[in-house]
């Protein structure tokens, strides 16, 4: 545990040691705000809720989260620091967990930057704070899911561009698995149970319920198991590619 905390601290500090953190937070806040007001019609809707804000999160994350995740392992491998890290008395699982946690905390920090929007709604009207809090939780969990997938892809390559493109593609499939784009590939040959299972894997579907304030154990379990599974695969990839 102490090792994971130490590694997480180092990773998190690394974000703020370079312009990366600031650029990311500024872009995230700009896009999140811009989409909410100009595309989501936050004001025109005349409703005291943040639906206009949260509905764009999957799309924002689709591009921004792989941008964070792409460097997690690819950069270590490229610069050779992975040899430094893996010859310290640190397990691959610990390193994988710590890197994920640091990046996830970082997306959490970016998300906290949007709280003024919540305050604005509270001043203008009387939103259901429970719904907003649940939606925030759902958004953060979804970011974690995207991130765990991105970290996994990053571990498989030393090229950050490949890591980014690969992560976006896989995250996109996970997002869309409830929609025709993916369903059509299964329809006709796969039994209905498979179609349903693929639909249940949809990040969008699981996020939608949470963003509307519905706390369902199944959705929470979905994100938790998605993250856990991705981290297990991530660890396996790191072990497998050791020194190569």
């Amino acid at each position: 545990m102490r090792t994971i905390a130490t590694l997480t601290r180092r990773e998190l500090a690394a974000y703020f040691a370079s312009p990366l953190a600031y650029v990311f937070v500024v872009i995230f806040l700009t896009f999140a705000g811009g989409l909410t007001f100009y595309v989501g019609g936050f004001i025109e809707r005349g409703q005291a809720d943040l639906a206009a804000f949260f509905q764009f999160h999957p799309w924002l994350y689709l591009f921004l989260v792989p941008a964070i995740g792409m460097r997690l392992w690819a950069e270590e491998r490229k610069t050779g620091t992975i040899e430094f890290l893996m010859t310290l008395p640190v397990g691959a699982g610990q390193a994988v967990t710590a890197k994920f946690l640091a990046a996830w905390l970082f997306t959490g920090i970016a998300l906290v930057g949007t709280v003024p929007l919540w305050i604005t709604v509270s001043v203008l009207g009387d939103p259901d704070h429970g719904v907003v809090a649940t939606a925030y939780l759902g958004s953060w969990l979804m970011a974690g899911g995207f991130l765990a997938i991105s970290a996994c892809v990053s571990a498989a390559t030393s090229n950050q561009v490949i890591a980014f493109v690969g992560a976006v593609a896989i995250c996109f499939l996970f997002m869309m698995s409830g929609l025709d784009l993916v369903q059509a590939a299964f329809r006709g040959w796969a039994p209905d149970a498979v179609l349903q299972a693929v639909r249940d894997l949809s990040l969008l579907g699981n996020f939608d319920a949470l963003s509307q304030g519905v706390v369902d154990a199944r959705n929470l379990f979905y994100f938790a198991s998605l993250i856990a599974l991705a981290l297990v695969v991530n660890t396996a990839i790191v072990e497998m590619k050791r020194g190569r």
């Binding site: 102490r2 090792t3 130490t6 590694l7 180092r10 500090a13 690394a14 040691a17 370079s18 610069t79 050779g80 620091t81 040899e83 430094f84 310290l88 008395p89 640190v90």
Partner: peptide
């Protein structure tokens, strides 16, 4: 190889903790 964005001071502190 070592983490370029860290200072030697931070790196040694990190190694000591790990």
């Amino acid at each position: 190889p070592s983490y370029g964005d860290m200072t030697p001071d931070a790196l040694l502190g990190f190694v000591a903790r790990v």
